[in-house]
Amino acid sequence: MAVRKNLALMLKTMISKNPWQVLYTIAIAASVGLGIVLGMQHFSAASPLTAAQMLPEPKPLTGFILENHRGEMASENIFRGHWSLVFFGFTSCPDYCPMELQKLAKLLNRMGAGDELQVVFVSVDPERDGQEKLASYVHFFHPQIIGLRGSNVELASFANFFGAAYDRSAIFNSKVLSIPAGINMPVEVGEQYQVNHSTRVFMVNPAGEFVGSFTSPYSVKDMLFDMQKLMGR
């Protein structure tokens, strides 16, 4: 209380003796404060992303035809006008895919982005992942997740564009059978086989260009930070 009284008295004396000096002091303090704030904003905009790895140059997505989980044709147009995160997997995956899709669903909830961000789950197992199965699968994790499927050839080409490696393997006649991307699963193998797939989550910007990816393991927090930054939010 005494300190406050003393300060008030000092200020009163200074104003009465030299009002211009007081005004100069206030102006200098305000300028310095404004400089600090603007500097911090500039530094923040230029600071690196937490987890995202960006490509040196954006890579436009073109010339693919897949099918979405509603059975509609999906081309590069589905990537235009909003940011997309693309993950490759398969629905019979008991451990890794559910874990990643839970994370991406959390991200969608935390972003609260509406149409500004979409998550795309691409099944690389078309023989087992029919349209209806894919639809109920993606909906289980989040109603806004889009499922994509297609022929083995189209899927391999689409995955290759992103550099998303995958293959399938089965034990057949007591031997390990490896089926590369793009090749149909032999009918005689049946439904018991493994799908080994990319762990990366790929980023596509609203211009429909592949711009970067997240490498596992990443946290929802880091991904949220980076996506908000990239989306200018």
Binding site: G163, Q194, S216
Partner: peptide, 13 residues
């Protein structure tokens, strides 16, 4: 009994 393992950029079971 399964083990999920990362092999380069791929996940294998």
């Amino acid at each position: 009994l399964h083990n999920t393992r990362k092999l380069g950029d791929k996940v294998v079971m």
